[in-house]
Simulated scan of single mutants.
Amino acid sequence: MKADPAVQRQLLDLAEADGELARIEHRRRTLPEIAEIVAAEKAVQGRRDAQVAVRTQVDDLDREVKRQEKEIDAVRSRSDRDNKLLQSGTVAAKQMTDLEHEIATLRRRQGALEDDLLELMERREALEMDVQHTEVELAKAEAAVTDASSRRDEVFADLETQEARSSAHREGLLPKFSAELLALYNRVREQKGTGAALLRSRRCGACRLELDRSVIAQIKAAPPDEVVRCEECGAILVRTPESGL
């Protein structure tokens, strides 16, 4: 394949533009903020689960408190009724003894229920502190997601600007190359990662390997407009005074 040496040298500009675009895409995929966001979102979900678990316990305790209060009210009402009946003076002596025994039993029962209620209220108070703690931790995790997302978006915006600039530069270069030369360049780039590189001091700029003396002799003997390639990586080798030929 033949191509004007000046056109071949412009392949280096195309390769640089493609390299920059590849670096931009690689950075976009491997931004540390992306992993940070994933970890922060996982933390958010964990904090939410913890919050739901604690609030569920609070709701369960609230139902238990209401049940306990209802039972205490029932015992208190029964005790008040027995006391009124006892004080009415209308009950027989045997019934009076039974009422006094029942009132004493109800009093003990009410005391036990009130103790249980106090314990429930203390547990609920402790859980309320847990709820507040989970809210604080959730807010911190959500703030971490917001912060990392903001930093990611800033980097993405900068990368988009760089990408647009490099893409425009690349598009401006394409008309300079023949369809045959461009097809070769693109094929090599897709297969090896680099389509063209400078031959500098007898070393390929793509694979960084030093070429054999015999290969260098063949390249040196090739006409200036001959498109030569690295025997190791297949990249188009662009010859300049730096090539050491």
Rank of each mutant, 00 (worst) to 15 (best):
D116A: 08
L117T: 01
L118N: 15
L118W: 11
E119G: 08
M121W: 04
E125F: 12
A126H: 07
E128W: 07
E128S: 11
D130L: 14
D130H: 08
H133Q: 12
T134Y: 11
E135V: 12
E137Q: 14
E137S: 09
L138M: 07
K140W: 10
K140I: 15
K140Y: 07
V145K: 04
V145L: 05
D147S: 07
S150W: 08
R152C: 09
E154A: 14
V155Q: 09
A157Y: 00
D158T: 10
T161K: 10
T161S: 08
Q162W: 03
A164K: 09
A164T: 07
A164H: 04
R165Y: 05
S167L: 15
H169M: 14
E171H: 03
G172M: 11
P175I: 04
K176V: 07
L182N: 08
A183R: 06
L184F: 03
L184I: 14
N186S: 08
R189L: 04
R189D: 01
K192W: 11
T194G: 00
L198R: 03
R200G: 14
R200D: 13
S201K: 14
A206H: 00
C207N: 02
R208H: 07
R208G: 06
L209H: 04
L209Q: 09
E210G: 15
E210H: 15
R213D: 15
R213Y: 14
Q218R: 12
Q218T: 02
A221C: 04
A221G: 06
A221I: 08
A222R: 00
A222N: 01
A222H: 00
P223E: 08
D225W: 08
E226K: 06
